[in-house]
């Protein structure tokens, strides 16, 4: 009887670490968080910003990243921001972690509104915030990212 071949996911031998962003790129991403949500850049002091093709990752700052770059990694740090077309979009994961520091563009939902939004993904909504990405909050808990546009609220919650 031929032996059944065991399926094993191989690690890509040339797997590369995400690239450390330049000062300018880091400043662009952190400025977006500051301008959009009022979260100061200092909130991310002590963290490196790493980049893959369309994603930015937050990872702890270290004196020398080189020894670590010898490892074949599966994931590094926290998925922080995505580049969607020409726009930057915060991830719900990052908003859940840092959203409590936000000063603006926060939408407070009632539990019923949150339920409906999670179910229907898009609901008519009116709020005193700028159009664009918003922080969805319910009873003091940050749930993640939404998009407020043309009196509608769109959910980007996972």
């Amino acid at each position: 009887m031929p032996r059944k071949k065991k399926r094993v996911k191989k690690i890509h031998k040339e797997a590369k670490w995400p690239r450390v962003t330049s000062f300018e790129e880091r400043d662009e991403v952190l400025s977006f968080w500051e301008e959009r949500f009022g979260i100061p850049k200092e909130a991310f002091e002590g963290y490196l910003l790493l980049s893959t093709s369309k994603n930015y990752w937050l990872f702890v700052e270290l004196p020398d990243i080189k020894p670590l770059q010898g490892l074949k990694v599966q994931t590094v740090g926290l998925l922080f921001t995505r580049r969607v077309s020409h726009w930057l979009k915060p991830t719900s994961t990052a908003l859940q972690r840092f959203g409590h520091l936000a000063q603006k563009n926060i939408i407070d939902l009632s539990p019923a509104e949150l339920d409906r939004l999670r179910r229907e993904r898009k609901i008519p909504f009116s709020a005193e915030v700028e159009e664009g990405y918003v922080i969805l909050r319910c009873e003091g808990k940050v749930w993640g990212c939404g998009l407020y546009v043309k009196k509608s609220l769109i959910s980007f919650l996972p």
């Binding site: 990872f59 702890v60 074949k72 599966q74 994931t75 590094v76 926290l78 990052a94 972690r97």
Partner: peptide
Amino acid sequence: LGVASVATTLY
């Protein structure tokens, strides 16, 4: 848990 300080490996 929103942890940023961890890299994961499969060795």
